[in-house]
Design a protein around this nucleic acid. Structure first.
Lengths: 129, 129
DNA sequence: CTGCCACTTCAAGCCGACTTGAGGTCAAGC
DNA sequence: GCTTGACCTCAAGTCGGCTTGAAGTGGCAG
């Protein structure tokens, strides 16, 4: 993990350094746990701001409501991705002369067109070359 | 669909207008199919560039190899998201006094920390306020 | 014929999560 | 003691997919 990431997180107030050794930040060990939670939250699809809100507003612990809310969101996303995956598999295997002549392909195409399947943000932004 | 989107797609050479009526672009009906394919591709997680490559390089039809490749990627993503979803559900339901004391939570936390679960790009970029 | 407003061009902005570049500092290793 | 290079600050850049702003044009309803 590059130092720039730590700086970024510190700026966002997700973590805090406990002082300096010369110029350099020092952190106490508890920051590892927080970094873990941040990674976890990111993997769950929370934004850094959401994560920050949940970690600072954590009364006794992390807000269970938000967790199950996010679980529901993930479930929906999984459903959509599953539709897509199966559609792609079929399209790859289908021997219709043109994809357009495959009813299955046209069905999934319509699903995408009517917005019943949403586009994900994009491939993998935030990770330049 | 705003005209700006069509312009953007045209600039990316994903669609082509067949002329102008005065200043305004006109498109022939086939563009609807292409727009559908674009929406589909986006929903599947292809970037616009990938979609463009696939549509223009389409020999007889859309490259089946790429399709099953993407299906595999989606499958992996689904797997990760499923782990996350179940973890969140558990964490939301778990009655351990602190999440840190829940073995299940710690397990998923470790999964995120070690990178066995990757962070998605982010919530929903590209869609300003 | 007139007025409106959806279109046009071109450049710049936005979101999120970082990275990178320029210019500088200093703790650690030899 | 001297070098080294990983850190520091701050601003700006990156990536994808559009949108938005300013300034202008012209098809179509009335």
């Amino acid at each position: 993990m590059p130092a720039s990431t730590l700086r970024y997180y510190e700026e966002k107030e997700l973590i805090a350094s406990n002082g300096r050794r010369g110029l350099r930040r020092t952190f106490d060990p508890g920051v590892f746990e927080r970094l873990g939670l941040i990674a976890l939250g990111r993997a769950a699809g929370f934004t850094l701001d959401e994560i920050g809100a949940m970690m600072s507003a954590s009364g006794p612990q992390i807000d269970r409501k938000r967790l199950s809310e996010k679980a529901r969101e993930l479930n929906e996303k999984i459903r959509q991705l599953t539709v897509m995956r199966d559609g792609l598999r079929h399209a790859a295997a289908c021997r219709a002369p043109s994809h357009m002549e495959c009813p299955s392909f046209r069905r999934i195409l319509r699903a995408a067109t009517t917005g019943r399947i949403a586009a994900p943000p994009s491939a993998a932004p935030g990770r330049p070359g």
